[in-house]
Simulated scan of single mutants.
Amino acid sequence: MDTRLLRTLLVLARTGSFTATATQQHLVQSTVTSQVKSLERALGARLFDRLPTGARLTEAGRRAVEHAREVLAAEQRLRDAVRGSTAVEGDVRIGAPESVCAYRLPQRIADAALRWPGIAVHLNAVNTRPALAGVRSGTLDLALVLEESVAVAGLRATALGVEQIDLVTAPGVAEEERYFLLEEGCSYTDRFVRDLAPTPTITRFGSIEAVRSCAVAGLGHAVLPRVAIADHLDAGTLHSVRTLPETTLFLVTDPRRTPSAAVKAVIDAIS
Rank of each mutant, 00 (worst) to 15 (best):
Leu27Asp: 00
Leu27Glu: 01
Val28Asn: 12
Val28Gln: 14
Val28Ala: 09
Gln29Phe: 04
Gln29Glu: 00
Gln29Arg: 14
Gln29Ser: 06
Ser30Ile: 08
Ser30Val: 11
Ser30Tyr: 09
Ser30Ala: 10
Thr31Gly: 09
Thr31Trp: 12
Thr31His: 14
Thr33Ile: 07
Ser34Thr: 12
Ser34Cys: 08
Ser34Phe: 14
Gln35Ser: 06
Gln35Val: 01
Gln35Ala: 05
Gln35Gly: 02
Gln35Ile: 02
Val36Phe: 04
Lys37Ile: 11
Ser38Met: 06
Ser38Gln: 12
Leu39Val: 03
Leu39Pro: 10
Glu40Trp: 14
Glu40Asn: 11
Glu40Phe: 13
Ala42Tyr: 15
Ala42Ser: 12
Ala42Phe: 15
Leu43Gln: 13
Gly44Tyr: 13
Arg46Asp: 00
Arg46Ala: 01
Arg46Lys: 12
Leu47Trp: 15
Leu47Ile: 08
Phe48His: 04
Asp49Pro: 13
Asp49Lys: 13
Arg50Ala: 00
Thr53His: 14
Thr53Trp: 15
Thr53Lys: 15
Thr53Glu: 01
Gly54Thr: 07
Ala55Met: 14
Ala55Ile: 10
Arg56Gly: 05
Arg56Ile: 02
Leu57Asp: 00
Thr58Pro: 14
Glu59Ser: 15
Glu59Val: 14
Glu59Cys: 13
Ala60Gly: 09
Ala60Trp: 09
Gly61Thr: 02
Gly61Glu: 02
Arg62Leu: 02
Arg63Ile: 03
Glu66Cys: 03
His67Asn: 07
Ala68Thr: 08
Arg69Ser: 01
Glu70Ser: 14
Glu70Pro: 13
Val71Glu: 08
Leu72Asn: 11
Leu72Val: 03
Ala74Lys: 10
Glu75Ile: 04
Glu75Arg: 10
Gln76Pro: 07
Gln76Arg: 09
Gln76Ser: 11
Gln76Ile: 06
Arg77Trp: 01
Leu78Ala: 13
Arg79Ser: 10
Arg79His: 07
Arg79Met: 01
Arg79Pro: 01
Asp80Cys: 04
Ala81Phe: 12
Val82Ile: 09
Val82Phe: 14
Val82Tyr: 13
Val82Asn: 10
Arg83Asn: 08
Arg83Trp: 04
Gly84Cys: 10
Gly84Lys: 12
Gly84Pro: 11
Gly84Gln: 11
Ala87His: 10
Ala87Phe: 11
Ala87Gly: 09
Val88Leu: 05
Glu89Ile: 03
Gly90Tyr: 07
Gly90Asn: 07
Asp91Arg: 14
Asp91Ile: 05
Asp91Asn: 11
Asp91Cys: 06
Asp91Pro: 15
Ile94His: 03
Gly95Glu: 02
Gly95Pro: 06
Pro97Gly: 02
Pro97Phe: 03
Glu98Val: 07
Glu98Lys: 09
Ser99Val: 06
Ser99Glu: 04
Ser99Ile: 04
Val100Ile: 07
Cys101Tyr: 05
Ala102His: 05
Tyr103Gly: 03
Tyr103Thr: 05
Tyr103Glu: 07
Arg104Ala: 00
Leu105Pro: 03
Leu105Thr: 05
Leu105Ser: 01
Pro106Trp: 02
Gln107Asn: 08
Ile109Val: 13
Ala110Cys: 03
Ala110Ser: 10
Asp111Thr: 09
Ala112Lys: 01
Ala112Glu: 01
Ala113Gln: 08
Leu114Glu: 12
Arg115His: 01
Arg115Gly: 01
Arg115Val: 00
Trp116Asn: 02
Pro117Ala: 00
Ile119Glu: 03
Ala120Pro: 10
